[in-house]
């Protein structure tokens, strides 16, 4: 069994009687990229802050790297395990990127020699090295976000927690940040990613949790799509005549619809049923142009769950 780096059980948080996070239960395995997807005000940042021990919980449990967020001694250990990229970069603008990273490396109690080597490798990897001594105030938004990522990694943490890392960035800068996250994923980092960008979640995350105060669904992106919308098989024919439709009906699919020369089937077990249906169509004289499987997109899943449709 893979080690759970982050685990929450019925984690809840209320502010002045208003519930921000309600009964959240999920886990993130070592090396997994877990995306918390949800609209603004869904409780994503509150969840991250509880996990990073920045704010307390109202009820429930959470552990990070085996340490409980309730245990004051464990809190310091949790902070060392995590590198946080907050929704606002929060850099010291008067400092250079290098000095920002040096300062945080020291605060994270990293040995001096390791800080300098980490800074150099991170800044080179993120294409910041040439401007390492320039004040951060002169950087573009994308560069600042890269510095924030480098800051989160300067102590070489086991877990990276990122809150909307590409929000407010132009497409090119957002792409660079996403590529950086993909590289970190390849390195085997455990990443908890808050986002409301569906495309980003789909591209980067192994597992997605859809949050709207409560966790509405959790699973692999593909599984989520299938579990919400099922799996449809679309058979495109040269001509969908009565004999062919009759043959399809004879195979007893859960549901089927005919639209022009295309037959869409809802099947319980497509791997077993599709070959049988294809054989029946061919036996009935049907000429098949293509057979494809379709399902709802992550966007469909998200909107269906968030809107409560």
């Amino acid at each position: 069994m893979e080690m759970q780096m982050i685990a929450t059980e019925n984690l809840s948080r209320k502010f002045d009687g208003m519930t921000a996070v309600d009964g959240l239960s999920f886990h993130v395995d070592r090396g997994e990229v877990f995306g918390l997807l949800g609209p603004n005000g869904a409780g994503k940042t509150t969840t991250i802050r509880m996990i990073c021990c920045l704010i307390g919980k109202t009820s429930g449990k959470a552990t990070v790297g085996g340490f409980s967020i309730d245990d004051p001694a464990g809190t310091m250990s949790i902070r060392k395990l995590i590198g946080l990229v907050p929704d606002n970069v929060g850099l010291y603008e008067f400092y250079s990127a290098y000095k920002n990273l040096m300062y945080f490396g020291r605060l994270y109690e990293t040995p001096e020699s390791r800080i300098t080597s980490n800074i150099e490798s991170l800044m080179k990897k993120l294409d910041l090295w040439d401007r390492k001594d320039d004040p951060v105030s002169t950087y573009s938004k994308g560069m600042k976000q890269k510095v924030a990522i480098a800051r989160a990694l300067v102590h070489d943490p086991e877990i990276l927690v990122m809150d909307e890392p590409t929000a407010n960035l132009d497409p090119e800068a957002a792409r660079t940040i996403r590529d950086t996250i993909l590289d970190l994923k390849k390195e085997g980092r455990t990443i908890l990613l808050n986002t409301h960008n569906l495309d980003e979640a789909q591209r980067l995350c192994d597992t997605i949790g859809i949050l709207k105060t409560k966790l509405l669904a959790v699973g692999k992106p593909q599984n989520l799509e299938r579990s919400i919308f099922g799996r449809n098989t679309v058979i495109q024919l040269e001509y969908a005549g009565d004999e062919v439709v009759q043959a399809v009906r004879g195979t007893n699919p859960r549901k089927y619809t005919v639209e022009g020369n295309s037959i869409t089937l809802e099947l319980d077990d497509p791997e077993k049923e599709t070959p049988r249906i294809v054989s029946a169509i061919v036996a009935a004289g049907g000429k098949i142009k293509s057979v494809n499987e379709t399902t709802g997109s992550l966007e469909d899943v998200y909107l269906k769950l968030v809107r409560g449709e």
Binding site: M76, S77, P86, G90, L107
Partner: peptide
């Protein structure tokens, strides 16, 4: 104001 307190508070510093 500059939001630098959150990353500071996230470090293992009391």
């Amino acid at each position: 104001i500059e939001r630098s307190l959150e990353p500071l508070l996230a470090t293992p510093t009391s």
